[in-house]
Design a protein around this nucleic acid. Sequence first.
DNA 1: CGCAGTTGGTTGGTGGTACGTACCAACGAA
DNA 2: TTCGTTGGTACGTACCACCAACCAACTGCG
Lengths: 167, 167
Amino acid sequence: MASRHAPRSDAVAGGPELSDADALAQVSFVVLATLGRRASENGVSIIQTRLLGVLRDRTPSMNELAKLLELDKSSVTGLVDRAEQRGLVTRIPSTADRRSVQVTLTGEGRSLAAAATGAFDADVEGLLDGLSPAQRRTLTRLLSRVVSDYASRRGLDLSGRTRASSI
Amino acid sequence: MASRHAPRSDAVAGGPELSDADALAQVSFVVLATLGRRASENGVSIIQTRLLGVLRDRTPSMNELAKLLELDKSSVTGLVDRAEQRGLVTRIPSTADRRSVQVTLTGEGRSLAAAATGAFDADVEGLLDGLSPAQRRTLTRLLSRVVSDYASRRGLDLSGRTRASSI
DNA sequence: CGCAGTTGGTTGGTGGTACGTACCAACGAA
DNA sequence: TTCGTTGGTACGTACCACCAACCAACTGCG
């Protein structure tokens, strides 16, 4: 753990050995930085993009949204407020419970989500450029496993959708 | 729903098939949510934790910090301001250039970084619980590759450290 | 030397994010 | 009907990030 000034003692060409935690953390920062660039191109933030992604195949209540995004419900109020002001989502009063609302994508929100995720998909292609197709499949399968384990552990329901920058 | 007893002939039992981009994005949210929980336990934010992680084996200038964190330099000013007020880092005037400062960890900052990353390491262990040791090694190796490709593409210098929630 | 241009960093202003608390309205059970 | 619970919002605070403007120090060049 000592920092070293040795010139090039790294065993593997192309980068230092990372711990599991560091590799995941660093990749996460890279991925979110990439997603953030695409989001800001469309004038929205990462969390707004994530909101739109979640809503692609759901119409949750504010409460469900808070659980999905792991945010406080008061945070979701503001998040949906801003998205609604921009015309990206709509609050629809629930018929079953008059206290509750269902949040849905507008057409504009849906097309913005499509644009942002499309560009992001291309970015990810670039990120994975150095991996062979087989390696990519392996990586994605392992990551999917990690995600679904996490979701089931936290009691989040992943079913009912095929793709999403969700959780 | 999440019965993991099924043979893994095709679709992974316990979760939907995710695209490369979705798998990466979702894992990133999971990882940062996890990191954020540990950070807030210590009374700091994710970005503060990241700052401390970067400083574990570096003493960069404000400008270098901005490049490493991919932030505007004015954002780094505020970030370091708050960390300095909490006694986590120090600005040391550069001897070579009187305009410049070098940001270093204080003892308190170093121990906080150690505590947060230690807990986070354990969390990641939990996240990867469902993977075999061989799968973990594969995953980490692939992710390290992605990170170093990204770093070299962006002209960031990874050398000079052994581990970090850095980039 | 003297001055223009560049670079390192801060300041000020704006908008967005997240939280805790307090609050209200609707729901459901006793 | 009353009471406790739940779904959602409003408010205040702190933080985060950016841009534009700015100052001070460094650099190069005549």
